Amino acid sequence: MRFEVLPVIDLMLGLYHQPAGMERFHQYLKHLQGNTRGDLAIPLGGFNPMGKAHVAEKLEQLKALHAEDIMADTLSSLGPLASGGVFKVALNLCDDLKGGWTHRYTTDYDARFKIQALVARGFCVPVFWTSESYDAALIRSRTLESCYRTLYWLTASKPLTLEDHGKQERYVAIQAGSIPFFSDAAIAAFYQQHKDSREYAVIFNFLYGDEAAASLGFPTFGIPGAMTGLRYLQQLT
């Protein structure tokens, strides 16, 4: 199996340069679904079709950095990773600044752990955020992480427990060379107590913290900061 870039930046810039309204929305659906309603022709689900001017500005920044060229170079250096076909890699820009329909952490969770529909259709989607500053290193890292996450889904069991989630993201971090440094005794103790849990609320709270969980009305368990548990899992040996 190998990975190839599916360019989408110019496509989405053309969309965002249209006035926000139903015509733009229908054009987005046409790009997304192709000629078959409900299908997925181009993986654009992370984009807000009604995004404001700042989304186009951030896309222009990615274009100025030649983001899709960097992605192509990164994928070329990978070579074939396993037997199989071609996966198309399409950058998605999610709006966590002013996008009314994008929750930063549920979207992040889905991009990591709910990718079956993408994998089944031969797509791989590195996610970027409008709140981020971009550089070549970030683009390379995010691209590699997305590819290795796709490979994991093809070769390993789907994550069910908290421990399963950790195994996936630790594999991705190791393969992509993006292991963070993190140590916290309380986080470690919580993980040991709940690593066999399959409860979404527990897993989500651990990965993203109390504030993210509370924003959705989920119970909280004293997990400080944002994405604290996720960083812990990525470096767990």
Rank of each mutant, 00 (worst) to 15 (best):
S141Y: 07
K98L: 13
I139R: 05
L216D: 11
Q175G: 02
T130I: 08
K98G: 09
L97G: 01
L97M: 12
G100H: 12
V127K: 05
W129I: 09
A136H: 05
T150M: 08
A156R: 15
L138H: 08
L97T: 13
A136M: 03
L216N: 11
D110T: 15
V119L: 13
F181P: 00
V125D: 02
K98P: 00
R104S: 15
Q192W: 04
R104K: 12
S197F: 02
T155K: 07
R104E: 15
A176I: 08
C147S: 07
F190N: 04
Y152F: 13
L154Q: 14
D184Q: 06
R149L: 08
Q192G: 09
H194N: 12
T143H: 04
E145L: 10
F123I: 09
F206W: 03
R104Y: 11
G99V: 06
Y148I: 07
K114S: 09
A214M: 02
I223M: 06
Y105G: 02
A201Y: 04
P159L: 07
T143A: 03
S215P: 03
D210V: 04
T130F: 06
H194V: 02
S183L: 11
N205F: 05
L154I: 08
Y171N: 10
S215I: 04
D108P: 01
I223V: 13
A120W: 06
A212Y: 02
G100N: 12
I223N: 00
S157W: 00
P126T: 11
P219G: 04
F190W: 12
R121Y: 03
D135Q: 05
Y134D: 08
Y134L: 10
A185G: 01
L154H: 09
L207V: 06
L162G: 01
E199A: 14
F190G: 01
E163I: 00
L118A: 11
R112M: 12
G222H: 03
R170I: 02
D210S: 11
R140I: 11
I174A: 08
R140G: 07
Q175D: 02
F123R: 13
Y191V: 03
T102A: 11
T130N: 08
F206S: 07
D210R: 05
Y134M: 10
R149M: 07
Q192I: 05
Y148Q: 06
S157D: 12
V119T: 14
F190V: 00
G177H: 01
T102C: 15
D196P: 00
S215M: 03
V125S: 05
A201P: 02
I139H: 06
V125R: 07
T130S: 14
N205Q: 10
E132D: 14
Q168M: 15
R112K: 14
A185Y: 00
